[in-house]
Design a protein around this nucleic acid. Structure first.
Length: 609
DNA sequence: CTATCGCATGGTA
DNA sequence: ATACCATGCGATA
């Protein structure tokens, strides 16, 4: 380095009477700052000083202090909160302390363990929870939140579009991918897009979708969700204060430019549609999170991880003045929702969150629903293949009360302190014709989708049976909730269930992870620092990647590897150097590399197809 | 005959 | 292969 320059990009002065040390650099050493900037950094004023005009400000979830996310300068000032959002360092610390204190009884919730094991009939007890003076409003809130957590349902037409939407990644895959990152960046693979098929115009529809999300995707707030911002080590901090995920190096997120999958690799992003305003939108991402006690020996399958959104959880915890610990959830099977009244509990969940039982007949447990009613179920098991199969018996009244059907999701959470178990639910997003038929016939005055409908006072969809002032009689309710087994089986039968889930996924997905990866570009006008890790050179940027234009790569023996991009003006395909990086909008007039071989690819494409 | 109980079976990950 | 779990099915009330 020749002459010294202040590394505050908005300063860059070369003259100062004293140089100061700034943030640690991944390449070693510390940022060099002029006296003023360095002093600001020391006083933790650096964000205001360095980034006051930049986007990416978020509020601390607790004290609402503004925090600038996604920049290296601010990384030590904020932490990702347990269930999303960010908190300033001091708030996050006290939050963790609070959680550790409230998590001393990690497994306990209030069980009824009387000797009435024979009573497997569910008896709703209205607001009889001892010590549960949690306000009704809070429970209604829980009700509302748990019910509401398919935001797309509220705006069905928007599901097809990505306007204002955010990419929704599946946390379990993110978590897996963190492992990838943590293992020496072994996940650096080139998307194999060698087939001209990929360039079929039909396949470009996803690109259209993608264009719509460029703006939101390139916001730092999103980056907070995709991967921890630079330097954050607690990607997922659990209520017990432990940290899940690997040490997240300051640049692991930023190293990937071009099309390298450097982000955690959620392969099935969907689109959240409720983010009318982008502020706070990140916390609305429905992300499955491994519950704190669901790890280790009884590792829960990701499919059972609770998917309550950050926003819901934060709001809920605040409103209840309690710590809501989402435990697990399950998509109701036909037999779960059927008339038999037995809800099969995933073994790991049962053994982790329910009291240990030695006798097959089990014990009665009390679980509060989101209306505050308390139900008693028989928690028991059947011997099965040298193992156990856990069930909750007597759930029919509860299932009917909530008008749940196969495919809906039932959620189990715990209220701390107190350990009270609470059930919530989420309606299926899948409304195939059969289902709609059932709902329509069963609830003639329900909306066609039968989904959540909010009223101003917070009533929610599943209270419709009451809101409809008795227009739904028992028979109708029965039709709605317990259609004939045959029909139910046909809707979501054993053969078609996974297919159903796939189609559900398909509804949510608007672009694949690989597609998103291809669009990542280094931040413009930002020079990388070259870092060598295990003999691999990585480019490190101090800013998050942005989304650039999608290109495709071809590999032909005679030509070598090539990159092609479609002009946004004439829509013709242009050949580019392999390492060329394009902005989101690009026209061939900017093609300074090769203007002589236009349309070759397109011709080949037409010949082949 | 029907509903329920308890276990067995087989598909899936 | 193995574990899990959705559901089938015979026994029983």
């Amino acid at each position: 380095m020749g002459s010294k320059i202040c590394m505050n990009a908005s300063c860059q002065t070369a003259t100062t009477h004293e140089w100061k040390r700034g943030w640690p650099l991944r390449s070693g050493g510390h940022a060099l700052l002029c006296y003023n900037c360095g002093s600001a950094y020391e006083d933790s004023l650096f964000c205001d000083t360095f980034h006051s005009e930049e986007p990416g400000w978020r509020e601390c979830n607790i004290c609402s202090k503004h925090l600038h996310c996604g920049c290296i300068a601010s990384k030590f000032l904020l932490e990702l909160m347990d269930y999303g959002g960010v908190g300033c360092a001091s708030c996050a610390r006290s939050w963790r302390l609070h959680l550790m204190q409230s998590d001393e009884n990690p497994n306990g919730f209030s069980f009824l363990a009387r000797n009435n094991a024979g009573d497997s009939e569910s008896i709703p007890v209205e607001n009889t929870v001892a010590g549960n003076n949690n306000n009704e409003g809070g429970l209604a809130q829980l009700c509302r939140l748990l019910e509401a957590n398919e935001p797309g349902l509220l705006h069905p037409p928007k599901r097809a579009s990505t306007n204002g939407g955010l990419v929704q990644f599946r946390q379990e895959e993110i978590m897996h991918a963190i492992g990838d990152i943590g293992t020496g960046f072994s996940n650096v693979t080139q998307p194999s897009i060698g087939s001209p098929k990929f360039a079929k115009p039909d396949n470009m529809s996803s690109l259209l979708d993608m264009r719509d999300v460029h703006s939101s995707l390139s916001q730092p707030s999103l980056n907070m969700e995709l991967g921890a911002p630079s330097g954050t080590t607690n990607f997922v901090t659990f209520p017990d204060g432990t940290v899940e995920g690997r040490e997240h190096t300051p640049s692991s997120f930023q190293q990937g430019q071009r099309s390298r999958p450097i982000l955690p690799k959620p392969s099935k992003p969907g689109v959240s549609t409720s983010s009318e305003n982008n502020k706070g939108a990140a916390s609305e991402l429905r992300i499955a999170r491994p519950p704190a006690e669901g790890r280790g020996k009884n590792q829960l399958l990701p499919r059972y991880w609770p998917r309550i959104t950050d926003q819901e959880l934060q709001q809920l915890s605040g409103d209840l003045n309690s710590n809501i610990v989402p435990l697990f959830e399950k998509i109701l099977s036909a037999s779960d929702a059927g008339r038999i009244g037995r809800l099969v509990l995933p073994k790991a969940c049962a053994e982790t969150y329910f009291p240990p039982i030695t006798q097959s007949e089990g014990i009665p447990v009390r679980i509060q629903d989101i209306k505050g009613r308390e139900w008693t179920f028989q928690f028991r098991f059947w011997p099965n293949n040298n193992s156990r199969m856990y069930v909750l018996e007597g759930v029919t009244p509860c299932i009917q009360s909530m008008q749940l059907k196969a495919g809906d999701t039932i959620t189990f959470s715990r209220i701390d302190p107190g350990g009270k178990l609470v059930m919530g639910f989420r309606r299926s997003t899948n409304n195939d014709e059969d289902t709609q038929d059932i709902q329509a016939s069963g609830l003639p005055n329900c909306t066609a989708s039968g989904e959540t409908s909010f009223s101003a006072d917070g009533d929610i969809g599943w209270n419709n049976s009451e809101n409809h002032r008795g227009r739904i009689n028992g028979d109708l309710l029965q039709q709605r909730t317990v259609p004939t087994e045959k029909k139910r089986t046909r809707n979501i039968g054993p053969k078609s269930k996974r297919l159903l889930m796939h189609s559900e996924d398909a509804m949510e997905l608007r672009l694949t992870w690989e597609e998103a990866q291809e669009l990542l570009r280094p931040p413009p006008s930002m020079k990388p620092t070259i870092v060598t890790i295990e003999d691999h050179e990585f480019e490190e940027y101090d800013g998050p990647p942005v989304f650039g234009k999608r290109t495709i790569f071809t590999s032909r023996s005679s030509w070598g590897k090539e990159q092609w991009a479609q002009c946004d003006d004439c829509f013709k395909w242009r050949k580019l150097p392999v390492d060329a990086l394009l902005p989101p909008k690009w026209t061939c007039s900017e093609n300074t590399w090769d203007s002589s071989r236009l349309l070759i690819f397109l011709l080949c494409f037409r010949i082949f197809y």
